[in-house]
Design a protein around this nucleic acid. Structure first.
Length: 429
RNA sequence: GGCCCUAUCGUCUAACGGUUAGGACAUGAGCUUUUCAAGCUUAAAAUCCGGGUUCGAUUCCCGGUAGGGUCACCA
């Protein structure tokens, strides 16, 4: 079975993580069934839809790595002729009618188009929740269009999904109560009913629907700017409400496509946890190549030095942005220029003389962290680890916090390491 | 409030009706190349409540309670 699905955001705001997850689930489902996924922009509300939001949504989806089967997004605002035809059909067979209205604060038209609703009980099957029933009498003859050229959301959605032959509608749980009214429209149109799957919502820490008001970042753009990897964000979003039933937690997009299953999606909403996202990002950072780190350096960092410092940064930060601020703060400037040393902080500078002799015996090509440790370790055991290692690290970095001295020395190289150490011992004598 | 949905550690979650209720993040403790980070080891931590059904319920049914969603001429 190859499914036809769609992701249909409304350009009334930037793409938020909930939308990204809806897109992801649709994408995974389409790909694993060998089906198609379309992108449709729901901009029937001319007042609130903004081109810059559409732009943001498109860019975010692209950054996340989604490829849609329609190269250009389908815009509802460009399809009024299709909706008009459908509306005329309903009016001519009297399943919808033009209704005279009293104008009030929230009712601005003297004439709207309403659907005739016989008030039947609607039952549909949701892939995630099972059967759901609604009594539609309370809906009354609801409005489906403001005029022949201004269809409302519910109507446009049903016409489009029908026309695009959408087989599965995967969307947020907040649409459950919209479903019966859309089914009523389908029946009036004699359109076939797609399969529904309503996914749980992403919640803020207080268990309310995640929104800008809840404090944490909600827009995909914000996570991008904070230096999260698209693969990590996708991985996290997939795990929020879904799991493969195994202990695997790190997934590539391809692995997700293989293992994803709509029916294993959780029913209850899930709180967005930034700490876990960071952990996942760290894991993805470990798997990614060095090239992603290039942009965190200022231009004055020589490229060979960058390559040696990247592994150190990689193991200390959770995001690219954290790495960038580490560089910007000057934390690792001692790799580029010799630091000024506060003599008293050396504590036991007298061990440095022997350290120099031991290091000098190493060939330049053997000046690696493990080799340096090997030659220094017996001395450190003998003279006291702290007595040997502390002044070495301090002499090289000038800081009381840094990576271990062997690593620092290997990055600096034999020549620079010995030069810094001799600088100290010369002053001491 | 009506309607709809949901309910396992703090969080994300696993568990054919039978498990010492498992894993991950976070937290506490310890180890390490006397620091920082990472890493490793380890600890504490949950089946919302009440009834059924059953030899036996986290699991099935009903009722509470709690949370969420939705009730537009928005999407």
């Amino acid at each position: 079975m190859s499914a036809i699905v769609r992701f249909a955001p409304s350009p009334t705001g930037t793409l938020h993580v909930g939308g990204a997850r809806t897109a992801l689930f649709n994408y995974l489902f389409a790909k694993q069934t060998g089906g198609q996924i379309f992108l449709r922009i729901e901009d029937t509300d001319r007042e609130r839809s903004k081109p810059e939001f559409e732009q943001n949504i498109l860019e975010s989806l692209d950054w996340l790595g989604f490829k849609f089967d329609n190269s250009q997004p389908i815009r509802q605002s460009e399809r009024t002729a299709i909706y008009r035809e459908a509306l005329e059909k309903l009016i001519s067979n009297d399943t919808a009618y033009i209704s005279k209205e009293e104008i009030s604060d929230d009712k601005k038209r003297g004439e709207v188009i309403r659907l005739r609703n016989s008030g039947q009980k609607i039952t549909f099957t949701d892939l995630i929740r099972g059967e759901i029933s609604f009594d539609t009498t309370e809906l009354g003859d609801f409005v489906i269009a403001k005029s022949l050229d201004e269809p409302l959301y519910h109507f446009a959605v049903v016409v489009d999904d029908w026309e695009m032959k959408v087989s599965h509608i995967i969307r947020g749980e907040d649409h459950i109560s919209n479903t019966p009214r859309q089914i009523l429209i389908q029946e009036a149109l004699r359109a076939s009913r797609p399969v529904y799957a309503h996914i749980p919502l992403i919640l803020a820490p207080d268990r309310s629907k995640l929104s800008k008001r809840s404090g944490s970042a909600v827009s995909v753009t914000e996570y991008r700017e904070q230096g999260f990897l698209p693969g990590a964000l996708l991985n996290y979003l997939a795990l929020l409400g879904w799991n493969p039933g195994t202990d695997q937690e790190i997934f590539s997009l391809d692995e997700l496509i293989k293992q994803f299953s709509l029916t294993k999606i959780q029913k209850g909403g899930a709180i967005f946890n930034l700490e876990k996202l960071k952990w996942l990002n760290r894991e993805h950072l470990k798997l990614a190549g060095d090239s992603i780190w290039e942009n965190i350096f200022t231009v004055d960092w020589p490229s060979d030095l960058r390559a040696r410092v990247i592994p150190i940064i990689r193991e200390r930060v959770a995001t690219l942005a954290e790495g960038e601020s580490l560089i910007a703060s000057g934390e690792y400037d001692y790799f580029r220029t010799a630091p000024t040393i506060n003599r008293t902080l050396l504590k036991t500078p007298e061990t440095l003389a022997k350290t120099i002799i031991l290091l000098d015996a190493l060939a330049e090509t053997d000046f690696t962290a493990p080799q340096i440790k090997t030659v220094l370790w017996p001395y450190a055991e003998e003279a006291g680890r702290g007595a040997v290692l502390w002044p070495l690290r301090m002499a090289l970095t000038g800081k009381d916090r840094s990576p271990d001295p062997f690593t620092v020395a290997s990055i600096l190289g034999k020549k620079e390491t010995l030069s810094r150490l001799r600088q100290i011992t010369n002053n001491v004598e």
